[in-house]
Design a protein around this nucleic acid. Structure first.
Lengths: 303, 303
DNA sequence: TATGGTGTTGCCTTTTTGGCAACGATGTCC
DNA sequence: GGACATCGTTGCCAAAAAGGCAACACCATA
C-alpha cells in the first residue's frame, strides 16, 4: 500500500503533531523509530527539516517546502489507489471508444447498456468521427476501441470483427417510392436526394457506387452529420442512401423506410471493430469488445 | 535520497525496459529482488501491473496508470531535491519582503546588494504597499519580512527593530525656503504643498502633526505614490513633508533639500522591521534581517 | 527544586530486502 | 527436432533496515 517512503509518512505526521512522541503514538510505533527516520531524512537531504524546541519540533522553511510536496503526494496516492480499486476485477476504469456515427445511434447504446449490467463501475468516453481520425486515435493510443467503415489496411491496427451492410434508399414513409419493396438508382433520380458532404463522401462505398452507375441526381443537400441527413429524409425532402444500421431506430418507429437497391454490383459498407496491434485488453474491455462484435454480427444477419 | 518506495523505482525501470533482467542490470540489483518487489506491489494493490509474455513483461492498463503517476512523482522529486540543494547552507531559496515605499528607494536596494555578496543564490520577492497590508501578509505567512510605518501593536507580529525619523519639509534646491537650515510649518503655508492621498495619509504621523498645529495649507496635489510626491517637489511645484529616508537619494544628488521642522512636538515616523510571531528564520533570512536592522539604525543616527 | 514534557542514543530483536543458484517455460537457430 | 538462449519465478540464506525498550540530557513550569 505505501507508495512513498515511511520516512515521508512519519515526517508528515510529525509536522502535523509538532512532536515526535505524539506522532509516534498516532503511528503506533516507538518514538525512537520516528526520530531515527527524521534524522536520516535530514541527513540525506542535507537540510534540517525541523528546528528543535524544548517543547517539540517546528518546521524549518525547508521542512515547509517538503511538507507541501508530501501532502501533494499523499493526495496523489489516495487518488490513484482509488482508481486502482475500481479497476480491481474489471481491469480498467474507462473504455475509450472512437466510432463512426452509424453505430452511435442504435447499436452502441444497446451494447453499453447490456455491458453496464455486468460492469456497472466502468465509465465510457465516446468520441464520434470519421474513419481516418478513428484509426489515428487507435494507433496513438488515445482511444481503446475503434469502430470504422472501410478502413485501409494498417499493420498497427488489429481488426476484431467486420461486417458488411449493403446500402439502400432511405425515405420518409409517405414517399412515392416507399411502396416498392426494392428500388433502382434510376428510380431515385426522379426525386431530390440528400448526400453526405465531401469529407464523409470521399472514398466511401457510396461514392464508388454512384460513380459506377452514372446516374444524374438532383442534390437537395450535402450534410456533414448523419443526424442531419436523417432529419431531412424524415421531413420528406428527399431520398438518402444509407445502410440499415444508420436508420434502425427510425425504421423501427416507422418514420423512415429502408429499401434495398436492385442495382448490381454495389459494395456494402464494411464496418470493422479494431484495436491497437500488440496491446492486450483488460478483462472488462475484452468483454465489451466481444459484446460489440456479437451485436454487429447479429445486425449483419438481420440486414 | 529516495522519497518514493523502492518498489516504485523498480517498477518504473521494469516498465521502461520491458524486462525484469534488463531492469535489474540497470538498477545494479539481482533480478529476483526486482521480481519480488513487483510481485509484492501487485499483491498489495490487488491489480496486475504487467502481463507476462514469453519475451518479457508488458504493462497492463493499471500499470500504465501507475507508471504515469510514478513518472510525475519522479519529476516532483527531482524538482524538490533541486530546491533543497539550493537551500543547503542558506536555509532558504527566497526572501519575500513586504515594505512601505520609504525603504524601497535607497535603503532596501543597498541592503540587498550587500546581502547578495554573501548569499548570491537567494532570490527576492519585493512587494510594496501600505502598513496594514504588510502586517496582514506577515501574519498570513505570504511574506517573510515586513517593513512598515507606525503599525498597531499585534501579538502575532514580532518586531525586530524600530527607528523613528522626524518629518521635515522637502523642496527643490531652488525653493525660497531652501536657504534656511530649519523651517516652521507656518513658513510653509505661504507656498503650495504636496500631500499623500487619503489612504497614505489616514492615521499617519503627518496627519496628527498637521491636525495639531492647525495650519491652513494650499494643497497643490494629493498623491498615492511616494515617487509622484518627490517628482512634483523636484519640479519646484511645492513643499512636501517626508522623512529623511524618503529622499536620501535625491538629497544626495542635490535635487531636493531636507529641512527639519522647528515646530514641537511632532512625532516622527516609526519604521519597524517585523516578522511573524512564533516563526523562526533560516540563517540567510536572519542574516538579511540583521543587515536591514543595522542599516536602519545607521540611517536613524545620521538623520 | 521537583516534575513532566521533550528529543536523543545504545543495545537488541524483528522485519525487510538482496544475492545466488536452480527450475520450468517459451521462442530461436542450426 | 534438438540444442540453446532468454524469460520470470522460487528456495535458501546473508545483509541491511526498521522497530522496541530503557536510559539519558535538556528545558519549562509549578
Amino acid at each position: 500500500m505505501p507508495l512513498m517512503t515511511i520516512a515521508l509518512r512519519y515526517f508528515e505526521e510529525v509536522a502535523r503533531q509538532g512532536s515526535l512522541r505524539k506522532a509516534a503514538e498516532r503511528l503506533h510505533v516507538a518514538a525512537s523509530a520516528v526520530n531515527r527516520q527524521i534524522l536520516k531524512l535530514e541527513e540525506e537531504l542535507g537540510v534540517p527539516l525541523f528546528e528543535r524546541l524544548p517543547r517539540g519540533l517546528r518546521l524549518s522553511s525547508a521542512g515547509e517546502l517538503l511538507l507541501y510536496q508530501t501532502r501533494q503526494w499523499q493526495r496523489d496516492e489516495r487518488q490513484i489507489l482509488g482508481v486502482l480499486d475500481e479497476i480491481r476485477g474489471t481491469g480498467c476504469a474507462e473504455i475509450r471508444i472512437a466510432s463512426v456515427e452509424s453505430m452511435t445511434d442504435m447499436a452502441l447504446p444497446d451494447v453499453m447498456r447490456r455491458f453496464g449490467q455486468r460492469y456497472p463501475k466502468v465509465r465510457f468516453q465516446l468520441l464520434t468521427g470519421l474513419t481516418d481520425m478513428i484509426v489515428d486515435r487507435i494507433v496513438s493510443g488515445e482511444s481503446d476501441i475503434g469502430i470504422c467503415v472501410n478502413p485501409n489496411p494498417n499493420p498497427r491496427v488489429r481488426t476484431l470483427c467486420r461486417a458488411t451492410f449493403r446500402f439502400g434508399a432511405v425515405m420518409a414513409s409517405g414517399h412515392p417510392l416507399a411502396g416498392k419493396p426494392e428500388v433502382r438508382l434510376q428510380d431515385c433520380a426522379e426525386y431530390p436526394v440528400i448526400l453526405p458532404d465531401r469529407d464523409m463522401f470521399r472514398g466511401s462505398t457510396l461514392e464508388q457506387a454512384l460513380a459506377h452507375h452514372q446516374v444524374e441526381f438532383r442534390v437537395l443537400a450535402e450534410c456533414s452529420r448523419l443526424l442531419s441527413i436523417k432529419s431531412l429524409a424524415s421531413a420528406g425532402l428527399g431520398i438518402a442512401f444509407l445502410n440499415p444500421l444508420d436508420v434502425a431506430r427510425e425504421v423501427q418507429r416507422g418514420e423512415l423506410v429502408f429499401r434495398p437497391l436492385k442495382d448490381r454490383p454495389i459494395d456494402g459498407a464494411r464496418i470493422e471493430i479494431c484495436v491497437a496491434q500488440g496491446r492486450s485488453m483488460p478483462p472488462a474491455m475484452a468483454s465489451f469488445a466481444e459484446l460489440l462484435s456479437e451485436t454487429l454480427a447479429e445486425e449483419e444477419g438481420r440486414g
